[in-house]
């Protein structure tokens, strides 16, 4: 049986090896100390690889993985969050927050009306709290509209 632990263990081994490999490329400065810049990363990479190997050899029972539709919802939420990160500055706080909060709300509980309402409510409510109560400098609306 292939289990999550085995796959993750393999990924860990590969990452650890890449980590050690790129540690060999660290430039050494003329200010040398007995340990140097490379030793500690080597130790971490080695222990990490051993742990990964252990997970491959002796995996724990698999957790309950989400089914395909759930995985789709998770992926969509992830994309929405990344888009939000890039929209926050050009579009201001209010519009992206309302949209993304509504999307997340809908993903947790798929009912359109409450989701839209919580998106709008959170966007307006948090804006008031951040801007006026906590005094953070937030841009509310897109710069184009604000002039």
């Amino acid at each position: 049986m292939i289990t999550g632990d085995r796959i993750f263990g393999l990924v860990v081994i590969l990452v650890a090896l890449a980590y050690v490999a790129s540690a060999t490329q660290i430039q050494v400065s003329f200010l040398a100390d007995p340990v140097g810049s490379k030793t500690f990363p080597y130790i971490i990479g080695t222990i990490g690889a051993i742990c990964g190997l252990y997970m491959v050899i002796r995996p724990d029972p698999d957790p309950e993985w989400p089914d395909l539709p759930t995985l789709g919802r998770l992926g969509f939420a992830l994309l929405a969050l990344v888009a939000y990160a890039y929209m926050l500055k050009p579009l201001g706080f209010l519009i992206p927050t309302a949209i993304v909060a509504a999307i997340l709300s809908y993903q947790i509980s798929p009912r359109p009306l409450p989701a839209i309402l919580s998106g709008l409510g959170l966007s307006a409510g948090l804006y008031v709290v951040f801007k006026f109560l906590l005094g953070l400098s937030l841009t509310g609306l897109p710069k184009v509209i604000m002039g």
Binding site: V12, A16, Y19, S22, A23, I26, Q27, V28, S29, L31, A32, D33, G36, S37, F40, P41, I44, G45, I47, G48, C51, G52, M55
Partner: peptide, 24 residues
């Protein structure tokens, strides 16, 4: 142990305090 290594490994990213050289 793996979790600790992940954290320690991430901590190494950036300028090395002692030598001032960038790592990872």
């Amino acid at each position: 142990a793996l979790a600790s290594c992940i954290g320690l490994g991430i901590a190494m990213i950036g300028l090395d305090n002692t030598s001032g050289m960038p790592r990872f």
